[in-house]
Write a protein that binds this DNA or RNA. Structure first.
Lengths: 218, 218
DNA sequence: ACAATATTCCACGAATGATTGGAGGACGCT
DNA sequence: AGCGTCCTCCAATCATTCGTGGAATATTGT
């Protein structure tokens, strides 16, 4: 015990986790999986990957035991192996945000100008309880179905324009999506504001909501 | 904004962090750096790496901004870029521990049988305050110098046998080292117990002590 | 200036990882 | 049993990364 080979082996085990996450594509899959379980095909489409490629990446995550699978008929559902994996993903993003200046560039190129107002989780909870706000889940319906903020209304961004009439006009709106780096709520707030609605976004999203162990409705 | 290329670029930025950590050697360097700043040469020796190899790995970490450097004369000192990096490293280990069954095998092969008693941080703090325990830092003197538990006595494991007489015989001993996966305290407790001393180890080590924001003496 | 020390840079072969299309396997339906 | 669906596995190609020894660079002391 205590020898070099054993120490190397130990750190090589730790590295299995980081190696599994050492790819933008796989992080994107983890981001999607943090919203709930999905099939290979659905993940491949959402992450814009070939089916074989997506499957290979998912196998890599599986071999590191970061995800688990469940078969239902011919479909195979992947899900994160635990909350700690989501927490690790969140911490990776946070470290990247704090350390990499380039990230801010990439972030604003993706999310757009920082022109949308936001509310914190605490404020959202308070106002949702008092019923003075309409909470809008703008993620794809599939992700809403896998768990959402209690009382939130599902209006995927793609349908928002068509379904404007369903949204109460006399209340403030708070839109949310996957997490701190998800573009959906940003776009939704821009669209709603352009329509003259009083809309803001939750500062982060469902990932952070779950990690804060706040209530999740199914 | 919101397009595929921008999204890919964003996740590729996140991946810079995980890619930098995607190597057992680099994780070992981070483990050492979590104890305090060190020179390239010292790191290379401690991690059993060739100088060029160590330098290359350190450059990789530096390009991901996970470490920073400081020049002093001809020497260059590397250190972690922030506490969040140490926290990320700790979380990687914890996820690995929870997810990988193989890790337990590697862990016990390195640390030896689980035959040593331990105390928690809280218990150590309490007993150290009341002065009823000798706290032993068994890391290399270099790491002790970079910060240690207040009141701890530096006796590197390599010197322990020769310096037994310096350690009060009438008090319980608590040994600690780098962290949860460091072998030094385990070996020290075995050695002390064999000498008939009442010795236990701190359950983890300096890494976790710092992350808990407990006082650190220099 | 020159030598000594400490580190980075460079170039190379070896090893590992990513991507893709197509074959193969498991499952459900009729 | 036969067929369609969904996914994994395989093999081939291409791109990255790793480890290493030696040359190049920066700094200090003589």
């Amino acid at each position: 015990m205590g020898d070099r080979a054993a120490k190397t082996a130990l750190f090589e085990q730790f590295a299995r986790v980081t190696k599994a996450l050492a790819s933008g594509k796989r992080l994107e899959l983890v981001d999607l999986l943090a919203q709930g379980e999905r099939t290979v095909d659905s993940l491949a489409k959402a992450a814009n990957l070939g089916l074989s490629t997506a499957s290979a990446h998912l196998q890599t995550l599986k071999h590191a035991h970061l995800v688990t699978t469940r078969r239902e008929g011919t479909k195979i559902y992947y899900r994160l192996a635990g909350d700690d994996v989501a927490a690790l993903f969140a911490l990776v993003r946070s470290v990247a945000q704090d350390r990499l200046a380039d990230l801010e560039t990439a972030r604003s190129a993706y999310l757009g100008p920082d022109d949308t107002g936001y509310v914190t989780r605490e404020e959202l909870l308070r106002r949702a309880r008092s019923g003075t706000v309409t909470v809008l889940d703008v993620r794809p319906a599939e992700e809403y179905a896998a768990g959402h903020i209690p009382g939130a209304m599902s209006v995927p961004l793609a349908d928002l324009t068509d379904r404007l009439a369903e949204i109460p006009a006399d209340q403030d709106i708070v839109a949310y999506c996957r997490g701190a780096y998800c573009v959906l709520a940003h776009d939704a707030v821009r669209l709603l504001t352009a329509e003259g609605r009083a809309a803001r976004r939750l500062v982060d999203g469902m990932l952070e909501w779950r990690l804060a162990e706040l209530p999740v409705a199914i």
